[in-house]
Design a protein around this nucleic acid. Structure first.
Length: 304
DNA sequence: AAGACGAAAGTGGTTGA
DNA sequence: TCAACAACTTTCGTCTT
């Protein structure tokens, strides 16, 4: 496993790149070992500059309502070394009780605990990356701070947090996709999300149609050349500012519809509109318009 | 029969007076 | 705050392949 000589040129001048996790030969550049463990200290860098190399504890997470920082008192009456604690039982019982109360202390904390569970559920149902769920948790926390949950269902605020997080991270999901996994409806999520953006002063840009392209193409089982063709068309439209005021989902759907025909993997308006979560009528409007703007009418006609 | 088409009426959000 | 407006949806009858 751990070589001391380069297997190619035999040189003993090997060095380890901690960041990339590779052992590399200095003379010929051959990578001898990949994905080796980082043997350096586990640093947690503190804002006050205390990076003295203390081994870090558990990674901080936003997904537990106290960010995973609290301690629990175990039910077994033992101390850290396993010895039985001699203090009387009722005293321990009291300690546990207060510990619990301190942890989930007030209604807001309790609300957070429920919300984060729902957030995790939604995240996994939608198979979102962990980072996205964490981002959603951040947004939910901000909303909770500002008491925006008042008079709204937790589910709606959670779903909106996810929706906004996806947009901010440039991996937009449609309202329908979120609503499908949530217990609330599309309208409610849309309304709540808009309110949250306003109240939290989040600058959420109109999503870029291209961000939907890869996902829709794969949902429609279209090959890469259709995907790149569609992307190409979208880029040109954006370049010429023909996308202003148009729904990004509709634009993307239309581009895919055209690309699928041009490249010989024809999909129907129905199939495309369904995966994009819009109506056929909108696909029709957009794609007609798009053919005109890109001067593709003849190309498209000649397919028949 | 399936797919494409487009008219007409309705919805919800934005904008500007 | 309200009306005008643009995008989008729903519904439905018709045409094309």
């Amino acid at each position: 496993m751990s070589e001391t000589k380069c297997t190619d040129c035999g040189s003993r001048n090997l060095s380890v790149d901690d960041v990339r996790g590779e052992k590399v030969c200095d003379d010929c550049g051959l990578v001898i070992e990949e994905t080796i463990a980082d043997l350096g200290a586990e640093w947690r860098v503190y804002a006050d500059g205390n990076d003295s190399g203390i081994r870090g504890g558990e990674k901080l997470t936003n997904l537990l309502h106290d960010k995973g920082l609290s301690t629990t008192i175990d039910w077994q009456n033992r101390d850290y070394s396993g010895k039985t604690i001699t203090a009387n039982r009722s005293q321990l019982h009291r300690m546990r009780k207060w510990q619990r109360r301190a942890r989930i202390s007030n209604s807001r904390e309790r609300n957070l605990a429920v919300a984060l569970a729902e957030l995790a559920r939604l995240g996994s149902q939608m198979s979102l990356p962990q980072s996205m769920v964490e981002a959603g948790a951040d947004i939910y926390r901000m909303a909770n701070e500002k008491r925006l949950c008042r008079g709204r269902s937790i589910d709606a605020v959670v779903a909106s947090s996810i929706y906004i997080a996806c947009r901010l991270e440039n991996m937009p999901r449609t309202l329908d996709e979120v609503a499908k996994q949530s217990r609330t409806g599309r309208k409610e999520i849309g309304r709540t999300a808009r309110m949250m953006q306003r109240e939290l002063k989040l600058r959420v840009k109109v999503s870029n149609p291209i961000d939907y392209n890869a996902r829709f193409c794969s949902m429609l089982q279209l090959p890469p050349d259709v995907e790149s063709k569609s992307q190409e068309m979208l880029e040109e439209l954006i370049e010429n500012e023909h996308t202003n005021g148009r729904g990004p989902v509709g634009l993307c759907a239309a581009a895919i519809y055209i690309a699928s025909k041009l490249m010989g993997y024809s999909r129907t308006q129905r199939e495309v509109s369904e995966t994009a979560g819009i109506t056929e009528v909108t696909v029709r409007h957009r794609y007609k318009e798009m053919l005109r703007l890109l001067n593709l009418e003849e190309d498209f006609e000649s397919l028949k």
